[in-house]
């Protein structure tokens, strides 16, 4: 294999890992904190299974690329912490795969939230342990910031994907007036956490504000911030729209004696839902842009 393709292979693998993590952790978080009743929704189940599969593939493929293609040894690829993190992540993924049926068979409330949330936190911790937050100055700040960042990403991006999976088929619009306010709280909290932890992490990695604004790492970081800002605007628009649609649907369904006919009109047709789908699609596309710039940040991070 052409050695120049090695960074490309690792970059693609990293995007797969982030995507899988967002799908898996996002869906589990969505079930646990936003919509426990959606545990048997087919689309969410597919998202969680896809997340497990993608995360597993990327977790295994990363070291294989280094060992088989780059010719590195185990000791060169792993530190003790990152080696342990690899197997802890595989354990968490195995738990997710083998116990997914149990997770969705019972209401994900009260103590039953423990398993899915523990799996999310465990996978997030392994990603932090394998990141550049380990070692160097400001290690504690970097570790805490990265952990908060990774979990908030799952809650927000993953929740957004889950929300889109629920919204677009238009099967549960009547429940959206409950789901969207809950998700909005999670999303708003996540955005604040992402802003604070992202800034702290970038400053810690770059070594200060001056170093951040004058480095390639800083340039990519600010591109990511710009994309993040665009996503915030898009997300705000989309959620306002979703909220309005949900409220109108619920009100109409309650008020009309021909509830079914009106509900069908409101939920299965009309330009409103189309616009909403476009807005959420754009938001998700921007989210993918964030994942790409995040994987790029790893390459240009200063040592």
């Amino acid at each position: 294999m052409n050695p120049d393709l090695l960074p490309l292979a690792l970059g693609i693998n990293r995007v797969i890992l982030y995507s899988g993590y967002v799908l898996l952790a996002g869906t589990f978080t969505f079930w646990s904190l936003v919509w426990p009743q959606g545990r048997k929704d087919r689309h969410l189940l597919i998202l969680s299974i896809a997340g497990i599969a993608l995360t597993t593939i990327a977790t295994v493929a990363g070291p294989m690329i280094d060992i088989w293609i780059a010719g590195m040894t185990w000791a060169e690829v792993f530190s003790p912490i990152s080696a342990a993190a690899l197997f802890v992540r595989l354990a968490a993924l195995a738990a997710a795969a083998f116990f997914l049926v149990d997770i969705v068979n019972y209401p994900i409330a009260s103590w039953r939230r423990a398993l899915p949330l523990t799996i999310v936190v465990a996978i997030a911790a392994t990603m932090v342990a394998s990141s550049n937050a380990v070692g160097g100055p400001w290690e504690v700040v970097k570790l805490v910031a990265t952990m908060g960042h990774v979990i908030a990403t799952a809650a927000w991006l993953g929740g957004l994907v889950a929300l889109a999976a629920v919204l677009i088929p238009r099967q549960y619009l009547a429940e959206l007036d409950k789901v969207i306010p809950r998700f909005s709280i999670i999303a708003a909290t996540s955005v604040v956490v992402l802003l604070v932890t992202g800034t702290l992490h970038a400053l810690a990695i770059a070594g200060g504000f001056q170093e951040l604004v004058t480095s390639d790492y800083g340039i990519v970081f600010f591109i990511k911030v710009a994309i993040f800002g665009a996503m915030l605007l898009m997300g705000n628009h989309g959620r306002k729209y979703a909220n309005g649609v949900a409220l109108r649907a619920a009100a109409a369904a309650r008020a009309s004696k021909e509830a079914k006919i009106n509900h069908d009109k409101l939920t299965k047709g009309g330009p409103g839902m189309h616009s909403l789908a476009v807005a959420m699609g754009a938001e998700l596309a921007i989210a993918f842009g964030i994942l790409l710039t995040t994987s790029l940040l790893v390459f240009v991070a200063p040592h």
Binding site: P80, V88, F98
Partner: peptide, 21 residues
């Protein structure tokens, strides 16, 4: 599932102590 999870966790401990700093 419990067996596989346990096996991975045991391997994680072994990998931690078996991988050189």
């Amino acid at each position: 599932g419990a067996c596989v999870v346990t096996a991975f966790l045991v391997t994680a401990v072994a990998a931690y102590y078996g991988t050189p700093e």
